[in-house]
Nucleic acid binder design. Structure first.
Lengths: 223, 223
DNA sequence: CGCGTCTTTGAGAAACATCAACAGCGGTGG
DNA sequence: CCACCGCTGTTGATGTTTCTCAAAGACGCG
């Protein structure tokens, strides 16, 4: 089942969407593997990830899966369309969330400031999804993995001596389904990056970036 | 350069974002090939497409292009992030737009109703982009093209006898860059659909769907 | 009519998927 | 404590899809 990752609980950060009007912040804890919402379900809330990581997925009728996004601290997840969730959302490790009732999306008058921040979050989400398009549509397998690791390194890497370290709470097949590849190809690309000395794997879920500049170059497509 | 498509000017429809507060609707006409905005530019407005079609693209440093979306009537385009456009936007045929100043995105108090509709439009956009992810990540070449044609057929197809007809204002290479394929593969997939009697091409830019049910089945992955 | 651009078609090459076997690792139970 | 089991990940051999390169055809435009 789900492996509990010795996990990089990212430093607390001020909630993005929080406004003065809702002074008392209600945190919500969920365990690894918990489903926060499912595709097609009526959307009752949007969530801000505070610590931990969520996985957002969609599945076709014939069982092919696409990981739409990973929800890291600072991300807003669960944006509905026509009142429904359009992805499954579940926790890859113990996760803390802030819940914002769906009404915040709809009643403009109620809390204009929260509403404004939600729109900004939605716009950032659109921008992030466009980056993801570039990966899925334009890049080779090794470029995709390099881009993916680069993004995580930039957003969540911790200095380790002169290197950068971060954890991958998701499985190889999650990464594969995120990048539109197979687990075998992901595994081979990891091996390639290891053998060329760009990264090291402390354990399966811990990446150490040895040559950040080379990783970035690979991500941009300079073989 | 750009070929002017004998174009399917879709029936006028009530503006999505229009509110009573801005009673007099200001329409804006642009010619084929006109750039409405460019990536990295300061975002001064968002646009609602009324007639015509826009193409939203992004390009990597080394020149690979991804068509992020096509903006058809009823779509809102030009959502900024951090105050900037993140795609190029240009017209594939003569296009009519309604302009909404960027301030509408930011000053919640100014026009709460417009703000609310913009958020709804952004949420629809996110949902549409998730559908696009499924195409890019999960589907084969022929499935991608079938899905693409299906979507256009559903949204903009006109009955032609017992068949459905619609126009493709974009080039084969636009379709290729939208689906993460090459023009040659698109061309071959079109030929395949033609030879199997699922569609007919009246001319390069006019598709007639002969077997909608088969096209849908192909789109869903039932070979 | 001729030219340039876009599209189609073909042949060969490359990337990635698929299938299969094996290794590593944690958990369980004897 | 060790043997066994199941799961995930890795590696290898092979197959398929799609890309690349090349050439010819179609179409609009001057």
């Amino acid at each position: 089942m789900y492996v509990t990752i010795p996990g990089e609980r990212h430093a607390a950060r001020p909630p993005l969407l929080q406004t003065k009007a809702t002074a008392k912040t209600q945190y919500h804890h969920i365990a690894t593997g918990t489903h926060l919402f499912r595709e097609g379900e009526e959307a009752r809330a949007v969530y801000e990830v505070v610590t931990g990581v969520l996985r957002l997925t969609r599945v076709t009728e014939d069982g092919r899966r696409q990981v739409i996004a990973f929800g890291y601290p600072g991300d807003i997840v669960g944006f509905p369309s026509d009142g429904e969730y359009h992805t499954d959302g579940d926790a890859l490790c113990p996760t803390t969330l802030i819940t914002y009732m769906r009404s915040a999306l709809e009643i403009g008058a109620g809390n204009a400031e929260l509403h404004r921040r939600l729109l900004q979050a939605a716009l950032r989400e659109i921008s992030a999804m466009q980056d993801h398009f570039m990966m899925l549509g334009c890049k080779s397998a090794s470029e995709k993995l390099a881009s993916f690791l680069c993004t995580l390194s930039d957003r969540f890497g911790c200095p380790l001596g002169q290197f950068i370290q971060f954890t991958l709470p998701m499985s190889r097949s999650d990464i594969a389904d995120f990048l539109g590849l197979t687990t075998e190809t992901i595994s081979r690309s990891f091996t390639q990056l290891r053998k060329s000395g760009v990264i090291a794997l402390d354990n399966i879920h811990t990446v150490i970036v040895l040559k950040p500049d080379v990783l970035l170059a690979l991500a941009e497509g300079e073989d």
